[in-house]
Simulated scan of single mutants.
Amino acid sequence: MNTPIPAQDVRPEPGAINRSCILALDLGTSTGWALRSHDGLITSGTVSFRPGRFDGGGMRYLRFTNWLTELDRLSGPIAAIWFEEVRRHAGTDAAHVYGGLMATLTSWAELRGIPYEGVPVGTIKRHATGRGNAPKEAMVAAARARGFSPADDNEADAIAILDWAIETNGGVE
Rank of each mutant, 00 (worst) to 15 (best):
T106R: 13
P115L: 02
G40D: 05
E137Q: 12
G52F: 11
M139D: 01
I81Y: 01
D93Q: 13
G40L: 03
I114A: 08
W108Y: 09
N66Q: 14
K125S: 09
T65S: 09
Y98Q: 10
P135G: 05
L105H: 02
L74R: 15
G91Y: 11
S37R: 15
F83S: 04
P77I: 05
A90C: 02
G57Q: 12
T43L: 08
S44K: 00
V140Y: 03
R36A: 08
V97M: 11
W67N: 02
K136F: 00
A128M: 10
R131H: 13
P51R: 15
F64G: 05
R53W: 09
I42E: 05
V121Y: 14
E137T: 02
R73K: 11
V86Y: 03
A109F: 15
E117T: 04
H38E: 14
L35A: 05
S48Y: 07
R60L: 15
L111S: 12
T92P: 09
G100Q: 04
R88D: 10
G91R: 13
G91P: 04
V47Q: 13
A103R: 07
S37T: 14
T65A: 08
T46R: 10
T106A: 01
R88M: 12
W67S: 02
Y98L: 12
A80I: 04
K136G: 04
R53D: 14
G45H: 06
A94W: 03
L68V: 03
A79P: 01
G132E: 11
E70P: 00
Y98C: 12
H96S: 09
G100E: 06
R131M: 11
V97G: 02
L41V: 08
R112L: 10
G113K: 08
S37V: 06
T69D: 13
A80C: 03
R126T: 13
P120I: 09
R50V: 13
R73S: 14
P120S: 11
Y116E: 01
E70L: 12
G122P: 09
G76P: 06
L111R: 12
E70A: 12
R88V: 14
I78R: 08
N133H: 14
E70Y: 03
T106D: 01
R53G: 11
L62H: 11
G122K: 14
S48N: 10
G58Y: 03
E137G: 02
M102D: 00
R88L: 12
I114V: 15
G100H: 04
D93P: 00
A128D: 08
A90E: 04
R73G: 08
A138W: 01
A95M: 12
E137P: 01
N133F: 05
I42G: 02
A80R: 00
S48L: 09
Y98F: 15
P135E: 13
V119Y: 00
A128F: 02
R88I: 14
A103C: 07
G118Y: 07
G122C: 09
G91H: 15
R60G: 00
L101Q: 08
L62I: 10
T65D: 06
Y116P: 01
N133C: 06
Y116V: 03
G113T: 08
M139E: 00
D55L: 03
D55N: 07
